[in-house]
Design a protein around this nucleic acid. Structure first.
Lengths: 118, 118
DNA sequence: ACGATATTACGAGAAAGATCGTAAGGTCAA
DNA sequence: TTGACCTTACGATCTTTCTCGTAATATCGT
């Protein structure tokens, strides 16, 4: 995942409504939710909703599928994983105690040098 | 970590220059880097640099310290951890196979139930 | 105190983002 | 085909963000 994509995903999430939409979809899972339902839940008029949904779509954070006359949106976890990977990637490259605050997931997820456990 | 803070952190990172600055500081570690050096590295005039540094500071992503006439900035990992935690938190709440794409770091980071190692 | 260095504060202009109303594109039921 | 429904597309307006130049603040060496 390259920097522009990361920035895109970050920017897409960096908004009250879009974050709410995304979390809604993440909780809902692969089944997804129709645009109308999303709009109701987050309290957005249709045109504003589309605007934000498009932003999430452009960032690759959600997928779109048609079900008769409704459009179903669902979260795409892979981009989020890429994002988290990127964010924690260089996290522990500074040295020893740099990440004692707890960013261990990075070490586990990205640099399986020492304990090549999985 | 509450939603507004999350949005703040996400928004702070969702910019080419700020992301570059942040990564620079993450790589550098607790030692940090003087503002001037950062500006040189990312190619920003002083006033623009301050603008972005302030944004990162407001978001809690970096810390500021004075060293004689230089201001040293360093990454604050805790906010990033909170961010990653939040992002992956509900990730697996949808059901079983929802997160098979790999959002396991969340499980590792947030529920140290099984291997309470470290 | 003075000049030099390092950095931030302020203000203006340009660019991007958000919100909404209304119109248009598909899809369904009859 | 017609009318109703769900959703997106377009355009206008408003707000926020970004960038830069210049001025101000703080620290250092002499």
């Amino acid at each position: 995942m390259k920097t522009p994509e990361i920035i895109g995903a970050l920017g897409a999430l960096a908004h009250e409504h879009r974050l709410a939409i995304y979390r809604l979809l993440v909780e809902r899972g692969p089944q997804g939710l129709a645009a109308g339902v999303i709009g109701e839940r987050v309290g957005l008029v249709p045109s504003s909703l589309t605007f934000h949904l498009q932003a999430l779509l452009r960032a690759g954070l959600v997928r779109q599928a048609r079900a008769s006359r409704q459009l179903i949106y669902s979260a795409d976890f892979s981009v989020m994983n890429g994002l988290v990977g990127y964010l924690t990637d260089k996290c522990c490259s500074a040295g020893d105690g740099a990440c004692d605050t707890g960013c261990k997931p990075a070490a586990i997820a990205r640099s399986p040098r020492r304990k090549s456990a999985a």
